[in-house]
Simulated scan of single mutants.
Amino acid sequence: MKIKDIQIGRISVPLKTPFKTALRTVNSVEDVIVKIVTDSGSVGYGEAPPTGVITGDTTGAIIGAIEDHIKKLLIGKDIENFEDIMITLNNCVVKNTSAKAAVDIALHDLYGQRYKAPLYKLLGGYRKEIETDITISVNSPEEMAEDSLKAVKRGYDTLKIKVGVDSSMDIKRMKAIREAVGYDVRIRIDANQGWKPKEAVYTLRKMEDSGLQIEFVEQPVKAHDIEGLKFVTDNVSIPVMADESVFSPEDALKIMQMRAADLVNIKLMKTGGIYNALKICSMAEIYGVSCMIGCMLEAKVSVTAAVHLAAAKSIITKIDLDGPVLCSEDPVEGGAIFNERKITLSDEYGLGIKNVNGIKWINNHI
């Protein structure tokens, strides 16, 4: 099964409601789709969102990295020589993690097809079904409380609340949400780098003193401020998760060695795909650090890949893969089955994706 061609296209999927964080507001998923065609007729799909404020990767950068660097080095390679392909992919261009992730996902899709197994079984096969949280965008306390209550009525028992926009207002937001949903619902918060270290400690202690029962706080400070992250971790009782601070296995190792965070969030668009994400999982197992699997605003191709990784590994104990349920439509045929908080994998080979509708191709499409 040799790589014959790598095709690139774009999809646009409207969101049900605007997605608001401390970093951005988004109204639709605008992703790059990768389709790898082999000489045996097998096809592997990958996907990457342009998330410039987090990864630095724009649509043009993703397309350029694949066309100018990745594609020409992978054409002709055999899927059986998977380690060689992964080494080539990771060394062909510096950074550009989203482009690498899209190709990595498509390659893993083909790897599963080559050995006639669902990808999660090849990666570990720990479980077949997982449960995700759902994200509540940052708005006024009243609107967030209403959105949280709607999510609970839909069956979600874990809410991920976006904060990081005005710390005093964040406390009011959390009080309103907790009052609305009660204490049988797990609440985790994501500051998206929105606080300074001392501000984070003050805000989180206020939340502790108010008895808000926060499961954990995600990325309270700037991504580069590892010392600040550790300062927060050392000075609050609420567990701290590193997200934007962790792109590479090297980043994860540093944070684990420093005990700068209690938890680590793995996202394929940061790691460059499954290959490096597996390395972070192995480190986490050694250091006893639980992981969450997360996603950017992505459609179902790349999120299905994340589901397979989450299903494969027991060290991934927290799931934040609500991207597809935030979309108003699903252009993907096959893949993971999303039923609100429950996500189930089929026994189809690879990722189990049959087709992606509505792709606007930007290079020669066979």
Rank of each mutant, 00 (worst) to 15 (best):
Q7K: 02
V13R: 03
V13Y: 09
T17F: 07
F19H: 03
F19L: 15
K20L: 09
A22P: 08
N27E: 10
S28N: 09
D31K: 08
D31L: 04
V32M: 10
V32I: 11
V34T: 03
K35R: 15
V43H: 05
E47D: 09
G52A: 15
G60N: 13
I66Q: 01
H69D: 07
K72A: 10
L73W: 12
L74F: 07
I79F: 11
E80L: 13
N90Y: 15
V93G: 06
K95E: 13
A99T: 00
A99C: 02
A102F: 05
D109T: 00
L110C: 03
P118I: 01
L123A: 14
I134K: 05
N139L: 12
S140M: 08
A145V: 07
A151V: 05
Y156D: 03
D157C: 14
G164K: 02
V165L: 12
D170C: 11
D170F: 12
I171A: 12
K172M: 12
K175Q: 14
K175P: 14
E179M: 12
D184C: 13
R186H: 13
K196S: 06
K196A: 13
T203V: 10
R205V: 00
K206Y: 07
M207L: 06
E208R: 05
G211W: 06
F216L: 02
F216C: 06
E218Q: 05
P220W: 00
V221K: 00
I226F: 12
E227M: 13
L229C: 10
V232P: 00
T233W: 00
V236Q: 04
I238S: 04
M241W: 03
E244H: 14
E250N: 14
D251P: 06
A252T: 09
K254W: 11
Q257C: 14
A261R: 01
L263E: 05
V264C: 02
N265I: 08
L268K: 04
M283W: 14
M283P: 07
E285R: 10
I286R: 11
S290H: 09
S290V: 02
C291Q: 02
M292W: 14
G294H: 13
G294W: 11
E298I: 01
T304G: 10
A306P: 00
L309N: 14
A312M: 14
C327E: 13
S328L: 11
G335D: 08
I337C: 08
T344E: 07
V356E: 01
N357K: 11
I362A: 07
H365A: 10
